[in-house]
């Protein structure tokens, strides 16, 4: 069965030189794709988690009584929202990366920075998407009636308890559709990690079509299909979650 499959693509490449699906019959190229997919999944997963955490914490700090805390959050949002994510990525890796300590590798002379390029990609993309998430959660928080928070206040809840027990669970539900969009964008933006040589899916695909120009179209096709599936899974998961969190008799 598998032989039939590979033979089909070998024949296809022979008969149509522009459609060389080399990764379907050459194990080394297939391994590159698998590795790329793994990195893309790790990047996406880590950035989704961290950016949501940044959004939740940032939105809380935005309600801080201290004007300086609020200004810092506002400055963070302005910087990360209004500059290109690719430039941020380069800045984090090439500029900030200079100042992080490194350790000596096992061979005794190479210097390995403690934050790898993958680490920097996760940090920079999380901060980028996190800035949008702060704004998304803030709009959700604004939809929670003041009077509901007042009730928590009157019951003796602290500001943090009111946030985690009452405001956030309600704001989250309101924010989900907008959050959904931003996370979809984030997953797609992980391809920019190619700029600092993170061997994710785009990086591997570019390597393959550089090595085998006849594989250009098929590799691009693979990229599109992979992201459609990946984002599809995310959207499906989010809409299931949205449904599971629906409160009887509340909202739409």
């Amino acid at each position: 069965m598998l032989e039939l499959f590979t033979q089909f693509f070998v024949d296809l490449a022979d008969n149509h030189p522009r459609w060389n699906f080399i990764f379907f019959y050459e194990p080394r190229q297939w391994a590159r794709i698998v590795k790329g997919l793994q990195y893309t999944l790790v990047l996406s997963f880590a950035c989704v988690i961290f950016s949501v955490i940044i959004g939740v914490v940032g939105a809380w700090l935005q309600g801080s009584p201290s004007v300086w805390v609020r200004r810092c959050v506002q400055g963070y949002i302005q910087f990360f929202r209004n500059t290109p994510p690719f430039v941020q990525l380069l800045f984090f890796y090439f500029a900030l990366g200079q100042f992080t300590p490194s350790v000596t590798g096992p061979d005794g002379w190479t210097e390995i920075p403690i934050i790898s390029n993958v680490g920097w990609a996760i940090i920079s993309l999380s901060f980028f998407a996190g800035a949008f998430n702060v704004e998304i959660f803030r709009s959700g928080i604004e939809a929670v009636p003041e009077s509901t928070q007042e009730a928590a206040d009157a019951l003796g809840f602290s500001r943090l308890q009111t946030y985690t027990e009452v405001v956030l669970p309600l704001a989250f539900r309101v924010s989900l559709p907008a959050l959904n969009n931003n996370l979809v964008n984030l997953v797609k933006t992980t391809t920019q990690a190619i700029g600092i040589a993170v061997p994710e899916l785009l990086y591997q695909c570019v390597s393959i079509w550089n090595d085998y120009p006849s594989a250009l179209y098929p590799t691009m096709l693979l990229l599109f299909v992979s992201f459609i599936v990946l984002v599809g899974i995310l959207v499906l998961g989010m809409s299931r979650w949205e449904r599971a969190m629906r409160i009887p008799g509340y909202g739409g």
């Binding site: 009077s147 009730a151 206040d153 009157a154 019951l155 003796g156 308890q161 027990e165 309600l170 539900r173």
Partner: peptide, 29 residues
């Protein structure tokens, strides 16, 4: 606020919690 309970015009219950959970939340938290 442990001494003084308050009931509002608009009830202000926590809409994401059941009636029982609404009553239990403050004593627990």
């Amino acid at each position: 606020r442990r001494k003084v309970g308050m009931v509002f015009q608009q009830y202000n219950l926590f809409p994401h919690k059941t009636a029982l959970e609404n009553v239990m939340m403050a004593p627990i938290k």
